[in-house]
């Protein structure tokens, strides 16, 4: 049995035979993405969009505090530093991880996956599958910062003092949206295709009750 030509339908999870004749999944009839180049280009395009959006997201203020006519603005990094100085370390860490570490990690992971799909490397496809899974699952967590800003702007909404989201909130929310699209449009066959030495194992599933 040649395991290299078996792929998993990303919608209904069934095992499909990957051949040139049919581009439909045999169970749910969703199009299993026909062209690998199309998937590669889509992932790259969404990734570039997200990276471009990440620049205004960091430069513009995410939170504007209007106190008795005075405006004070804070960017994402400024906000984290301010929280750290105030001594709320856990919150500063959560925001740091959610809005700096996670997006950058996603950019790096997707770039790495895209590069290794074109060039032969020593990394095993097993590891790359795991990396893609991590990329997909950490994606939405960067929304925390935008959510917090919006919640604060609703609660601190008085005539004397107001908090409202700045331009960076829009840029950041869109950035998260596009990184998620980028990770979702990455076809798993891009991982397997260039690793001729397949890592597929045939064996019985581990039993546990």
């Amino acid at each position: 049995m040649n395991n290299e030509h078996l792929i998993r339908c990303h919608i209904c999870e069934t095992v499909n035979y990957d051949n040139a004749l049919t581009s439909e999944c045999r169970r749910c009839h969703t199009k299993i993405r026909a062209s690998l180049r199309c998937s590669y280009n889509k992932t790259l395009a969404f990734l570039i969009t997200a990276i471009i959006l990440y620049i205004p997201a960091n430069l513009y203020p995410i939170l504007i505090t209007k106190q008795f006519g005075m405006n004070s603005e804070s960017t994402i990094l400024g906000g984290i530093i301010h929280l750290w100085e105030l001594g709320s370390y856990p919150i500063a860490l959560i925001i740091l991880v959610a809005s700096v570490v996670v997006p950058l990690l996603k950019f790096l992971l997707i770039t790495y996956l895209l590069i290794t799909s074109k060039h032969q490397t020593h990394s095993s496809s097993l590891d790359k599958h795991k990396l893609l899974y991590i990329t997909e699952s950490i994606g939405p967590w960067s929304m925390v910062d935008v959510f917090v800003v919006v919640i604060l702007s609703v609660l601190i909404h008085f005539s004397g003092i107001q908090i409202y989201p700045g331009t960076a909130a829009t840029a950041f929310a869109l950035m998260v949206f596009f990184t998620m699209l980028s990770a979702l449009s990455f076809d798993t066959r891009l991982i397997v295709n260039h690793n001729k030495k397949s890592n597929y194992k045939k064996g019985k599933a581990l039993h546990a009750s």
Binding site: N3, L6, I7, R8, E13, T14, V15, N16, Y17, R26, S125, L126, H129, K130, Y133, T188, I191, V192, N199, Y200, K201, K202, G203, K204, A205, L206, H207, A208, S209
Partner: peptide, 28 residues
């Protein structure tokens, strides 16, 4: 093909084994 299953995380291919009630199969 129906007897096979691919892990969603690491894409390892497995042959399914029949389970009895309330049993679960995990990826190795």
């Amino acid at each position: 093909l129906d007897k096979l299953i691919i892990c969603k995380k690491c894409h390892t291919l497995y042959e399914k084994v029949p389970l009895t009630k309330n049993e679960k199969a995990f990826c190795n």
